[in-house]
Nucleic acid binder design. Structure first.
Length: 283
DNA sequence: ACTACGTCCTGCTTGC
DNA sequence: TGCAAGCAGGACGTAG
């Protein structure tokens, strides 16, 4: 479940190991992850041969690699995507989808079990791919406009959890860190945005920033091992999590058992004492 | 413009 | 033991 901290860890790894390299070969092993490249897998590969990678950038949970012809490789890890830097001769991973040979002993591999993620070429997208122009800046971005965010948030009628997951409003937050931030702020995710006082909204934003920063600070080791664990078996964020995945465990603030609820076909975790449910909207 | 819901994927876990 | 259903979930398309 890569969210901002995990994607940023990947970006840093790409910056270190891939930027400056030239692509000498592309092997698309499964068409699905390049589905957003309309011209198809063969064209995807052909266009990239010989291109040099100039940088590794991120907007929200999207990554892009600007190329020396003004285009960019645009990527999203989805739920289970990994960017791995491996020795060229290393055995193929079970879910290896795309392999990039480089002018280097190492190659770049896109591995993705569930294939919600993918790669595409963004024409002229080196600066910022037009495909992700609608994605808001993330709250750690120096150019994130706090005032605009707070104002927009407090005009919306949806529950704040849904709003935190709206990447056009604020990017980088997923299901896990949304729950953590709401717990930090003591706000229930069902509270409508337009029912938040400005101080509540600011507390919530502070919670988002705090949990993202803490997770990022813990996140450096995964890519050093050339492996980003996105399947949750051994996530090193586990010990930081206060509510996510902790159903029936005592809240660290008040000992009330954490509750799990269904939300948007997925789970939400919260403390019913620290995060009281809003009064139900009369219909 | 905003809201809400369904869909895409695979593999692990759960239940009968 | 076997099989099916449930579950995980980010982003997008669609309808209202």
């Amino acid at each position: 479940m890569p969210e901002l901290p995990e994607v940023e860890v990947v970006r840093l790894g790409l910056q270190q190991h891939v930027v400056g390299r030239t692509i000498t070969g592309v092997d698309v092993l499964h068409a699905r992850p390049v589905r957003r490249h309309a011209a198809g897998p063969a064209d995807f590969a052909a266009q990239l041969i010989g291109r040099r990678i100039l940088a590794a950038n991120r907007r929200g949970k999207y990554l892009w690699l600007p190329l020396d012809n003004g285009d960019a490789i645009l990527g999203h890890l989805g739920m289970s995507g990994q960017m791995l830097v491996q020795p060229a001769g290393a055995p193929a991973e079970r879910h290896l989808r795309v392999r990039f040979a480089l002018n280097s002993p190492q190659e770049l591999r896109f591995v993705d079990q569930r294939m919600f993620g993918g790669l595409a070429i963004s024409a002229g997208g080196a600066e910022l791919p037009s495909e992700i122009a609608h994605i808001a800046r993330d709250p750690m971005d120096p150019l994130f406009n706090e005032t605009v965010f707070l104002t927009r948030l407090r005009k919306r009628t949806s529950g704040v959890k849904r709003l935190l997951l709206d990447q056009s409003l604020i990017s980088g937050v997923g299901n896990i860190y949304a729950d953590e931030a709401l717990w930090l702020a003591g706000i229930h995710g069902d509270r409508p945005g337009n029912k938040l006082r400005r101080a509540d909204a600011m507390t919530l934003l502070a919670g988002v920033r705090r949990v993202l920063a803490q997770a990022l600070a813990q996140g450096g080791t995964s890519f050093d091992a050339l492996y980003v664990n996105v399947n949750g078996e051994r996530g090193y964020f586990d010990r930081l999590l206060e509510v996510y995945g902790r159903e029936n465990e005592p809240c660290s603030r008040c000992d009330t058992p954490i509750v799990r609820a269904k939300f948007m076909n997925r789970s939400s975790y919260f403390c019913p004492t620290c995060q009281p449910r809003p009064r139900r909207r009369s219909s």
